[in-house]
Simulated assay, not measured.
Amino acid sequence: MKGPLFYSKILLFGEYGIIKDSKGLSIPYNFYNGALKVDENLDGKAKKSNQELLKFANYLEDVSSDSESEVTFDIDKLKSDVKAGLYFDSSIPQGYGVGSSGALVAAIYDKYALNRITVLENLGREKLLQLKRIFSKMESFFHGKSSGLDPLNSYLSLPILIKSHEDLEPAGIPSQTTSGKGAVFLLDSGIVGETAPMVSIFMENMKQEGFKNMIKDKFVKHTDACVDDFLKGDFKSLFTNVKNLSNVVLDNFKPMIPQKFHDLWKKGIDTNAYYLKLCGSGGGGYILGFTEDFEKAQKALSDHKLEVVYTF
């Protein structure tokens, strides 16, 4: 058995902000993917995945039996497949902010959810929100708290515009140009990040009036402007807003930026060669970069591994 492929995702804008109703824009990233497979001779990574799936199956059994649950699973089938050697064969790096658990959740829902909402249906706002709620519940097993957006992106394999908690839609993003110098890229921090501790730092900070006001007055404002500019293809305005956002993150989200990248972050803002922002919850994994001249950014970041995500 080999299931269909589910892709990684990149939240271009909206990390942390979407918890507080900012806009967000999430795109599939087809460079990494994963699929469910069965093998009776498991070792290493596959064995670990299989053990994790057994715990996940037990968790989903509770979700299934909840009378208010919007989803039920074929738990017997899932458990017998796990016993037979089911695992998630994935190239998506874990703890890197590109949705490794989201792709797994999408794959499990696709294969084992009863009465599932399929991608072929006419997915209006209500169905999208229902899927997001289901995925949020499922992915909470991995992170403690999940928006459900990563699995939704992986399941639909479409860019998604988040307008607010209760309003999201598939989005059309500007076509990439091969001739342009500008790029969105991933910078590998070389450190694995963990989502749950970062989210709890954020939630703790939200109890402080000053931090809460900064999120509302600066972080959400710049994030919303970035989303609008990107969708319109107004890259001149986008870079002004990304620079502002990069500054706000450096000033207020230091625990989420690995220590050795603080100076590099500031260097980008000071030289305008590139601007960095969080990719996912931060704390490690990938850092997202924006530049108007990728060659210039490459020179400035020559000690680091960069992957281009989008060109313009």
Rank of each mutant, 00 (worst) to 15 (best):
F6S: 09
S8Q: 06
K9D: 01
L11P: 13
L12Y: 09
I18S: 02
S22E: 05
P28Y: 02
Y32R: 04
N33W: 00
A35W: 03
A35D: 03
D39R: 15
N41V: 06
L42W: 09
N58K: 12
L60F: 07
D62S: 08
D62Y: 02
D62G: 14
S64H: 08
E68V: 05
S69T: 14
V71F: 05
F73K: 11
D76A: 08
K77A: 14
K77V: 06
V82T: 06
G85K: 01
L86I: 03
F88Y: 12
D89P: 02
P93M: 09
P93V: 07
V105M: 12
A106M: 09
L114F: 11
N115Q: 15
I117Y: 11
I117T: 13
T118F: 13
T118M: 12
V119H: 09
L120V: 14
N122H: 14
G124W: 03
L128P: 08
K137I: 13
M138H: 08
H143Y: 10
K145G: 04
S147P: 12
L156K: 11
L158N: 05
P159L: 05
I160F: 01
I160Y: 01
D167W: 03
A171L: 07
I173H: 04
I173F: 03
T177G: 14
T178S: 14
G182F: 01
F185W: 05
L187I: 11
S189W: 03
E194C: 00
M198T: 02
F202W: 02
M203R: 14
E204S: 14
E204V: 00
N205Y: 14
M206K: 03
Q208W: 00
F211Q: 04
K212H: 14
N213M: 08
M214K: 13
K216Q: 15
K216F: 10
K218D: 13
K218F: 07
V220C: 14
H222Y: 15
H222A: 11
T223K: 12
C226W: 08
G233D: 01
D234P: 02
K236A: 10
L238V: 11
F239A: 04
T240K: 13
V242E: 04
N244C: 12
L245R: 00
L245Y: 07
L245C: 10
V249E: 14
D251H: 08
N252V: 09
N252D: 05
M256L: 06
W265K: 12
K266M: 14
T271C: 07
N272P: 04
N272Y: 00
A273R: 02
Y274G: 05
S281H: 06
L288G: 11
F290R: 02
F290L: 04
D293F: 01
Q298C: 06
A300P: 00
D303Y: 04
Y310R: 13
